[in-house]
Design a binder for these strands. Structure first.
Lengths: 340, 340
DNA sequence: CTGAAAGCGCTTACAG
DNA sequence: CTGAAAGCGCTTACAG
């Protein structure tokens, strides 16, 4: 049904290979007479010929497409990441598709395998996978990918992240300096590297200021807003409720806000809140959020850059880790602790 | 580098076609000896063979993949739509990819053409395209797709939408019944069908209650939060400010809320607000939003259903339009007009 | 029951 | 300068 090279070759009266050559614009070491060149263009237009990219890719062993695998497009961080990679792909002449794993490990595995077996040239991945073995395999198979935002300890893969340890440390330090002595911490536990780093930053900040670590105040949970809600409820129901809370993602934050609302807690009066957020959401909130702000657009740009480099050089290029700096923005969701 | 059928055929010592047949599980009219079957499975495992889906698709003329083309994944409506289609694809054994057009018409065209030329079996599209000619062409070419949420007047394409005219009519009627006499309306102008329907619903409701239509109170704008912000500012700066406002998307709403905040307008005291929203955002807001709520999950399910049907029957199936009912939820972003 | 061949729609090294 | 052939990695009708 779809018109092929053969069809237009027949119409023009030349060999399909000639058509291919003309359309590829390969005029360096190849020159057709202007007449047949014109009639080729005419036929292409008339028959509405569009090359079958699948056949092309099979032959060329290159799809000229990259994919992004993210845990949750509802999280504006990932939407922004997608946008910035999209732009980079445009600039480099790559096609771009997004796959959403909904924080589901099997879906992630399935999607990555699908994209790979379909010949997608490379992937930017924000992993939810707990076991890094899967990614080690990808590396062994020389499949080009770069991790973004989250990664694993000393994995031999290109990655673009922020220093989550530092980010959390500073944020918690800020709360401590405001006089808070009971500071809760809610984090998504799925993401190996990031999670441990966050927890470490939290604990380190406490110990640095000689504060006792209280197990009840830390919740490592799933990454959905429901998980955030549950975690926050547990914390709000503690006999000795914390006066400050740090939560490390927008998705979790949605649940935390809901739980706070239900518990009748006012922010910042009853609870100082620090997030890890993206400005897009702020207009929705009754206050401006004090938050760690990751340079998401830049992360996307760098990730795309590393990916293109990896696609071209495959195993030859050295593994590159890029760590970008987050900003810490003070809004009015945080307040001095009562009595300090 | 990647291991192919040939490689494992060589290893086992049979013809590639035999491998293919065994792996396809075609045991009806075909039986290999259990020994070589086992050694095939063993070799597949050892060499870590994964079929090249591109080659497979080229041969089969079927990729077993569908795509979703949406204007803005930041809008939770589209994220939810994606999720529900994703689940449907899982159930039917289809792969699924998302392309985000960022409300950009050229990007939309580019993406649809890309997906099509890559052999994606069919598409669910939430169009931003102004001119429907592009879609008429797709139909002419028998390319399977279904429109979701937005469509064009009497286009010969499968579609799943809500009755936006009715939805808006009812919402505006509700405001009128609360006593509001100056009701503004902000809508995204890009989406042919939807937009006109929204405007019509708004105007119809006014005229039904013998209210004058005031040109200054209606803003047809882009679909981004920035557009919403600009539109709202214009409206809030009118000498005779409206007491109520209806806005037809979450993205626009973000901008509207920002503008309201900047103008020092309290909701609902100074301004009754009706949205067209998705519950996911509500925890962010200081009030529960009175809003039209579209059955997005169901729209996705129906759209997927229509798409699978279309993929199978191509041109044989009649064009199907499905119109689902929205809910109207009264929250506390609306109030009786002062003095009524 | 299994092998050899053709073909999906391209591109490109090889002839002429 | 252009045609004919081979081949990308599969599947399946056709032989044997």
């Amino acid at each position: 049904m779809a018109v092929t090279l053969k069809d237009i070759a027949k119409k023009v009266g030349v060999h399909p290979s000639t058509i291919s050559r003309v359309l590829s614009g390969d005029y360096e070491n190849f020159n057709v007479s202007p007449e047949i060149r014109d009639s080729i263009y005419k036929a292409v237009k008339e028959l509405n010929y569009v090359p079958n990219e699948m056949a092309r890719s099979l032959r060329l062993k290159k799809t000229q497409m990259v994919g992004l695998v993210v845990p949750n497009i509802l999280n504006p961080v990932f939407a922004e990441l997608a946008h910035s990679i999209d732009l980079a792909c445009d600039a480099q002449g790559y096609g771009f598709v997004i796959c959403n794993t909904f924080e589901n490990q099997e879906k992630e595995t399935k999607y990555i395998n699908m994209l790979k077996s379909r010949g997608i040239d490379g992937l930017v991945i924000v992993p939810v996978q707990e076991k890094r073995a899967f990614f080690d395999d990808l590396i062994k198979q020389d499949y080009p990918f770069v991790l973004a935002l989250r990664q694993f300890d000393d994995i031999q893969a290109d990655a673009v992240v922020t220093d989550h340890f530092q980010d959390v440390f500073k944020a918690v330090e800020y709360l401590i300096k405001l006089g808070h002595r009971h500071i809760a911490f809610i984090d998504a536990s799925q993401s190996g590297f990031v999670n441990k780093a966050g927890e470490k930053g939290y604990k380190q900040a406490l110990s640095r200021y000689n504060m006792r670590f209280d197990h009840d105040l830390i919740q490592s949970t799933g990454a959905t807003s429901d998980s955030g809600y549950e975690a926050a409820r547990q914390i709000f129901n503690l006999p000795h409720r914390p006066t400050a809370l740090m939560v490390t993602s927008d998705s979790l934050l949605v649940g935390v806000l809901k739980a706070a609302f239900e518990s009748g807690l006012s922010i910042p009066e009853d609870l100082s809140l620090v997030g890890c957020s993206n400005s897009t959401l702020s207009p929705y909130m009754p206050f401006s959020l004090t938050a760690i702000s990751q340079p998401v657009t830049e992360i996307g740009e760098k990730a795309a850059e590393l990916l293109f480099r990896r696609i071209e050089s495959k195993t030859d290029a050295s593994v590159k880790k890029i760590v970008l700096h987050s900003q810490f923005n003070v809004g009015d969701s945080t307040l001095k602790a009562f009595g300090s």
